[in-house]
Design a binder for these strands. Structure first.
Lengths: 229, 229
DNA sequence: GCAAAAGTGTTAACAGTACACCCATGT
DNA sequence: ACATGGGTGTACTGTTAACACTTTTGC
């Protein structure tokens, strides 16, 4: 038996106005792992591609059009991972932009990615792998587009990065890095100041809405002659 | 049906004394894809973990003790990828150090990774994915240990990197980068000069033989206060 | 001594962080 | 005016590529 799972992340506002990274989980009503939380997903159809399958399964939990980025994460096949017998699971990483608020079924809820509830099977590991992947890719690709709203101010964007990376991010430097790399561009617009004043923030957008590697060679770059290949 | 495949790379000397990256492939004797070349692997056992399975399957082609590094690469499940019906394949990337010369069966041969022969199924894609992964990881981890012999001179190491990366690598800078990162250390020994003279090369080894990420934050590092976590 | 191979020193480029400072707005 | 949030300028740091130069060997 082969199943397909998804770690779907979204940056969401908390009660106290801050923002944090959350994962979409549903609560199991039946054994095994009754009342524990599990990743959305299900059995792979007999004539279905893996990507198509996870999209189909997700459609039951969230509006799939909301998922701005989806990529394969890992495949787990330990014989003991499912008590009912051998189930191989291929997991995906999915990202939903901060603006979308997809209605979710009753058994489904968003959970703080840093404080997972009791999880079914090996799903906690999978969430952690997804988190690590997201963190890494924020560093050397433009995946930010999949967490951010279509248009945003730098300080909003900063909030998304802060939540996803789990550490403070300087707005000043974030702006410069992303501009330099050509990931974002100003729309020309600006947002009116809040009620406590302050300079109106200019609005930016991601230049491209597809995954792009912007910082390819961290080190060991090819010599200048052979670059630009 | 679930199968497990491996892209096994080794840097091997060519006829003209240079070195190049090669993949281990076997020639299919039966349809489908008769006479085309395929990746080693086979069906996943009913109670076998994925990692164990690929190790077992590889044992039939090469001495498994020779594989210095093995990591999961990707899972392909397109319904049309296998003419006989649905087969999901999980691929691994394996690396064999340059010194090992594992005896391989008659139907099996090493092939230039840059000039693949006619390949069965979607195996060419998988090899390319493995190549890309290797290139990337050479940049920010110590995977080099899995391509190099246990002890080596800088110019030998340079040859391995050159072959794997596909571009020229400066011995001077490679040495400095890997030393600075603490990946390699001098053994204290030196190799006698060749018959045409030259200063004897000192011998190095990798400090650690397990995968380690040595260049974690390409960019977007956490602020100094929050680092060292 | 001379060629060959290895290794060191030095410079320059570049990307990113930190921080001080300037700008535009509401009260 | 002044507090508030946004944006720019600038210095500093760390890392790496490039290349000249020195060291050690065989002939």
């Amino acid at each position: 038996m082969h199943e397909v799972l998804a770690v779907v992340f979204q940056v969401r506002p908390t009660a106290d106005g801050a923002e944090r990274l959350e994962v979409l989980l549903w609560r199991r009503a039946r054994a095994p792992y009754r009342d524990a939380w599990a990743l959305p997903g299900g059995a792979l159809g007999a004539t279905e591609d893996l990507d198509d399958s996870i999209r189909r399964q997700l459609a039951q939990k969230v509006d799939v059009r909301e998922v701005a980025h989806l990529e394969q994460l890992m495949t787990s096949g330990a014989p003991g991972r499912h008590p009912d017998g051998r189930v191989v699971a291929t997991s995906y990483l999915g990202l939903v932009p901060a603006n979308a608020d997809p209605g979710v079924p009753d058994d489904t809820r968003w959970h703080d990615a840093d404080a997972l509830p009791e999880m079914a099977f090996d799903h906690a590991e999978i969430v952690d792998a997804g988190r690590a992947r997201l963190r890494a890719k924020l560093s050397y690709t433009n995946v930010g587009f999949a967490l951010a709203t279509p248009e945003f101010t730098i300080s909003q964007l900063c909030g998304y990065y802060r939540a996803a990376l789990g550490h403070d991010v300087s707005a000043t430097n974030l702006q410069r890095v992303l501009l330099r790399r050509g990931q974002i561009e100003p729309t020309g617009g600006a947002l009116p100041s809040g009620r406590r004043g302050g300079r109106p923030a200019s609005v930016f957008r991601f230049r491209d809405r597809r995954l792009e590697v912007t910082d390819e060679f961290a080190v060991l770059r090819p010599p200048v002659g052979a670059r630009g290949k």
